[in-house]
């Protein structure tokens, strides 16, 4: 066995990657396939048990009921908003850490950035819930002196909550991208007379664009699939994840059909950004 591995580089490589490959195929591709298969089955309408007979009814239900079209649009809207807000906050922060802050303090700043990831997701969202309470919440207390009142639970609270949760996933890739930026290019830009704003928009942004896109994959996909934050901060507002959650116990095939929507959206998104080179940046 050892001789064989020593002699054959190909066999060695195959052994090395077989485990991760198995993981990838069985757990990722396999579960996606199971999801798809489930979506073309039906249920016994009384006991809710799965009947393994082919039907397209689940897809017909998903695509003909206006409610599910609307919820898809709302989910997309939230995911896009969260991604844009995260990018707007993350770009200056990443730039500051990578370029402005002293080299010695960078690791500390990065560590600070990821501290929110140390706490449980649920703890953070429940903290936001108490802050968003319409009357007794912190946000209401904060803005009531200027005549405003807390928006309460709903789409706004969901966007804020998700933005807070996923921000580190946007900052880290952008920081990595900006750190790689050669100083000579920035010097050249200022030598040629560009002000800092011009340098930022014409030099830094285009070069770090793939990094931003890489970050957006995280924030976008994580927002698309979330349902717990929506349950806790959403009030009566719902997203695609909630539809799946609501239906999986009684109509698993239908839930599977709904769950394929974000998969399709992510596939379209990933293939459309493949050309930007962002996938090399992951």
């Amino acid at each position: 066995m050892r001789d064989l591995l020593n002699k054959r580089a190909g066999a060695r490589a195959a052994t090395l990657i077989s485990l991760p490959l198995l993981w990838l195929v069985v757990l990722y591709i396999g579960s996606l396939f199971a999801l798809f298969i489930t979506s073309i089955w039906q249920i016994d309408t009384f006991t809710s048990k799965i009947v393994r007979e082919f039907t397209l009814q689940n897809f017909i239900d998903v695509f003909t009921d206006r409610a599910y079209f609307n919820v898809t649009i709302r989910t997309l809207f939230v995911a896009i908003c969260v991604t844009i807000i995260c990018a707007v906050i993350a770009i200056p922060m990443a730039f500051f850490i990578a370029r402005v802050a002293k080299e010695k303090s960078r690791p500390v700043l990065i560590a600070l950035l990821i501290t929110p990831l140390w706490a449980s997701y649920l703890v953070k969202i429940y903290a936001w819930r108490t802050m968003f309470y319409p009357e007794k919440g912190f946000i209401n207390w904060l803005i009531s002196p200027i005549g405003l009142s807390s928006p309460g639970f709903g789409i706004f609270a969901v966007i804020i909550g998700l933005t807070y949760l996923w921000l580190p996933y946007m900052i880290l890739p952008i920081y990595a991208g900006m750190e790689k930026l050669p100083t000579s290019i920035l010097d050249a830009s200022s030598d040629l007379g560009a002000k800092s704003a011009r340098t930022f928009f014409s030099v830094i942004l285009p070069i770090t664009w793939p990094a931003i896109i890489a970050g957006s994959i995280f924030t976008f996909s994580l927002s698309m699939g979330d349902y717990i934050t929506v349950q806790i901060l959403g009030g009566t507002f719902q997203m695609l994840g909630n539809v799946v959650y609501q239906n999986f116990s009684l109509n698993l095939p239908f839930a599977a059909a709904v769950a394929l929507i974000p998969v399709i959206i992510m596939m379209v998104y990933l293939s459309s950004i493949r050309k930007t080179g962002a996938l090399d940046n992951l």
Partner: peptide, 13 residues
């Protein structure tokens, strides 16, 4: 009940 569930899911969304 399956129809109730369907209607409820559609209504909530």
């Amino acid at each position: 009940y399956a129809e109730w569930v369907k209607a409820w899911s559609s209504f909530r969304n």
